[in-house]
């Protein structure tokens, strides 16, 4: 202890480095050790198991018709859900930042509910509300629209789960946006629509894309709410995560591993895209 204090003052550079290393060790050790055991080891186990499959077998298992249909259902539904929240997220963020109305604070705080509510509860209540005799489902049933236990239900669960992302990424950007530019566009005779498309929307694009991508990533990995609200029938509304569980329940570890690896690879790719989008957004700010 005393040595570090003495060392510090006269020649700071090499000694402070030494001091750094001596105090660095414990947090560094915990961080790297924990990451290795808890994160890298499991990922390695998955990849090692996947690599025991011959490439041709891997490809065959990864592209069986059932697997392909789950990818399509998972990714297309997740994308649609993320895009719907992209559109309505702009609306909700705009309303919350720009307007005043009763219960605004309450509504603003409630936006985070999907983050806090356990997904099993979300699935349970969506399955009830959107079932044929539920509040909303009973209104849709005469129109021939079934939501619960169909692919629409999968989409509904994904919309619920990803609702906060776009709103929360847009709010700070909207807050910082200067009203002057809009007013300038207005006074120059631009219509509402023109002002929105040409002036308001462009600076929002990086944050909007980040929010949509975060939502998409979350929806792709969603399991709890979807498994309850869907009927989990192959080619109809079976998603990739549920297929992995079904394979595991049949003790088909190869099948589960291959599909799990495909899902992991795509998730990491999405994570990379999100990081790039965020870097782009930061560049936009300055």
């Amino acid at each position: 202890m005393s040595s570090t204090t003495i060392n510090r003052s006269p020649i700071s550079k090499p000694k402070s480095l030494l001091a750094k290393i001596s105090q660095v060790s414990l947090p560094w050790r915990i961080t790297l050790g924990y990451l290795t055991i808890m994160l890298l080891l499991p990922v390695a186990a998955l990849l090692a198991k996947a690599s025991t499959e011959k490439p041709s077998d891997f490809w065959r298992i990864a592209t069986t018709p059932v697997a392909l249909s789950t990818y399509e259902i998972t990714f297309v539904t997740a994308l649609v859900a993320a895009l719907i929240n992209g559109v309505f997220g702009v609306l909700v963020a705009w309303v919350l930042v720009r307007y005043d109305f009763p219960f605004k604070r309450f509504i603003d705080a409630a936006i985070d509910l999907p983050f806090a509510l356990p997904t099993a509860v979300a699935g349970l209540t969506l399955a009830t509300v959107y079932s044929e005799n539920g509040w909303i489902g009973s209104l849709l049933a005469p129109l021939g629209i079934k939501v619960a236990f169909t692919r629409l239900g999968v989409g509904m669960a994904m919309i619920f789960i990803t609702l906060p992302f776009v709103v929360r990424t847009l709010q700070p950007v909207l807050q910082e946006m200067e009203k002057d530019i809009e007013e300038a566009a207005w006074s120059l005779g631009a219509s509402h629509w023109q002002t929105f498309w040409r002036v308001i929307l462009p600076p929002l694009v990086p944050a909007l894309l980040t929010g949509v991508a975060l939502g998409f990533a979350r929806a792709v990995g969603e399991y709890g709410s979807v498994v309850i609200v869907a009927s989990n029938i192959p080619f109809k509304d079976l998603i990739a995560s549920v297929l992995i569980i079904q394979r595991l329940e049949q003790y088909d570890y190869s099948g589960a591993t291959v599909i799990g690896t495909v899902l992991l690879a795509i998730s990491l790719l999405i994570l990379l895209v999100i990081n790039l989008l965020q870097a782009w957004g930061k560049k936009y700010e300055t």
Binding site: Y223, I244, G260, L263, S267
Partner: peptide, 10 residues
């Protein structure tokens, strides 16, 4: 980023 199911599988 990883699906919880994949986490369980690992």
């Amino acid at each position: 980023a990883v699906s919880p199911v994949v986490t369980g599988l690992m």
